[in-house]
Amino acid sequence: MSARRYTKDHEWIIVDGDIATVGITDFAQEQLGDVVFVDLPAIGKEVTKGGEAAVVESVKAASEVYAPIAGTVVAVNDGLAGEPAKVNAEPFGGGWFMKLKVKDPSELDGLLDEAAYRAFVAESH
């Protein structure tokens, strides 16, 4: 399993074989506040790198979640429908959003590692 990587839009991604798991970061959930709804993509949907893949909503905000890399949606976290609070409680665990079948592993190279993401958050906020 690869190390967790990050985007400047505050998504994270972990790759295991050719399957990537995607979620939003702890920083993102904190900015958003209490998550009340997550609109997840249909299984089989093709997403492009940086393209809209999901929407996460708090009471007074809605944010797009972008795919860190291109791929095909092979699973989504159905548990979030009944328990959107998981995104707040376990952003890196039970609050994951979707699994993608990776199209081009080299796209991962452009993403931030943990140190770089931390630095990015510290610098821009």
Binding site: V36, F37, E57, S58, V59, K60, A61, A62
Partner: peptide
Amino acid sequence: LATREQHIRREK
């Protein structure tokens, strides 16, 4: 469910 509405979602 105000996130459906224009004051939050604007053009979406």
